[in-house]
Amino acid sequence: MLHRRIFQFLIVYLLGIGLLFGIKIVLNLSDYVIPGPAGVWQTGQAEFSRYVGDVLDTFAVAVIGQVLSILMALGVGVAGRRATWLGSFIKVAAYNVQAYPIVAIAPILFILLGDGFLTRLFIAAMICYFPLLLSVIGIMSEPVTDIEHFYRVTGRLRWQLEVKIRAFENLHKLTTVISGSATLAMAGTIVAEFIAANAGIGYSIRIALYQSDLAKILVALFIIGITLSLYQGILELLGAGLKKVWAAG
């Protein structure tokens, strides 16, 4: 699972780099526009350590934001799973808020909270929260009738058991959604850093953009991609392990 994730990323990354070098050769572009392989390699050697630190900084914010989102989505999703007034309200609110681009309100957060850790965390959490919430509500509001029937007719179906049944039956879906939300959390943090923060890989990419240094951006993308692939692979392994342990009783 883990090695497959990394392998997939490397294929995509190398294809992208190859496409860029292909464009450079075909259009005879200068190293200023698209640096050559040697230039990228040299930049990588020079900036790798600093960028790894920046990516880990961003990654830490993204992970905290994602964990917060997961906890909130599970709490609200469980509350909103029923076909009650509250459940319907939560669903409608989640669908409507999700349709609004959260990044668009990022400047407001920077104005109100400044460009520190909290703003980045807030944006990361907001960006992955709503898709997570919709998925959790979708999973939790779908009855597993062939299992729940017995408990329902014998009066044993408490909300805890209902959630347990639905979570167990949809553990693979939940793992995939949580793993996918890692990308969203990372993207949210980078976007936040890109807009106004003073730390993280998004901030470094913004500086590289101002310097028109594509090599630095390519190195940053490589480290971001590897880190995310590792994280998603680990999340999937954890999900599979949890299912195995749970199923083993």
Binding site: D146, I147, F168, A247, G249
Partner: peptide
Amino acid sequence: MPCLYTHNRERLPGWSP
């Protein structure tokens, strides 16, 4: 006492024997 209905597509939860 209740009138219970059971059918052949029911399943038991997978987390215990």
